[in-house]
Design a protein around this nucleic acid. Structure first.
Length: 216
DNA sequence: GCCCAGGTGTTTC
DNA sequence: GAAACACATGGG
């Protein structure tokens, strides 16, 4: 089931999702640094698994930059084991933590693109992780073109390139046209992920498509 | 047992 | 450039 033309505006999509599952904030974390850690740990892994790893780090008293950097690779890897790719992610966490220590205080002096480029230079921070951090830590405007977003847009009839950056390049104009506030963008990503999980549980995006029908 | 989950880096055409 | 592959675990 796909929507017939014309394609809905992103503003319309946002409003339709907001009605069906009203919720305020989204990225669950107790600190900015925890968002950074979570953004890396959640790569290609269910959030539930990330929670186990973050809990282990918190209970060990390691959930701050100095704490992460003080851990030996093998120890850190063991603590984050539930989040998968433990050896790879242990290295990524070290990299991004070093970046955080060196750049967090200066971030406000950088423009959005410069800050994104700085994040992308870290090994372990790809386009999605960078946008997560830009949006949820630094409150910069960013749309998260993750798997859920691309899947939803495809169901809505958009021609969506298969990779993150290609989708971003091809469809950013739709985001800009909607003139979202940062707060709206932050909520939007959460709404899209929740809608995706719901669609998955129900076996289809029908609920979302139905809610869009009444809004042209 | 099989497939997927809020990707990224490296290698190889 | 893009495609193929490695990276690892927990839940349905």
């Amino acid at each position: 089931m796909t929507l017939t033309s014309p394609l809905p505006s992103f503003r319309t999509i946002y409003e339709a999702l907001a009605v069906s599952s009203p919720q305020a904030k989204w990225w669950p974390a107790e600190s900015e640094f925890e968002i950074v850690i979570g953004a890396v740990l959640t790569q290609n892994v269910a959030w539930r698994n990330v929670e186990y790893a973050i809990t282990a780090l918190r209970e060990g008293g390691h959930l701050h930059p100095e704490g992460i950097l003080a851990l030996e690779h093998a120890h850190l890897a063991e603590l984050i084991r539930p989040a998968g790719y433990m050896n790879v992610k242990a290295r990524y966490l070290h990299n991004v933590t070093s970046w955080f220590q060196a750049n967090h205080a200066l971030a406000s002096s950088l423009g959005d693109e410069a800050l994104r480029a700085s994040l992308l230079a870290v090994k372990g921070v790809g386009p999605e992780t960078a946008d997560d951090i830009l949006l949820y830590v630094y409150r910069r405007p960013a749309f998260i073109w993750d798997l859920y977003a691309r899947r939803l847009l495809t169901h809505l009839g958009f021609e969506v390139p298969s990779t993150y950056e290609a989708a971003r390049r091809a469809l950013s104009e739709h985001v800009e046209a909607a003139a979202f506030s940062v707060e709206e963008l932050a909520v939007f990503h959460g709404l899209i992920v929740d809608a995706g999980k719901l669609a998955q549980a129900e076996g289809s995006y029908n609920a979302v498509l139905e809610s869009l029908k009444g809004r042209s």
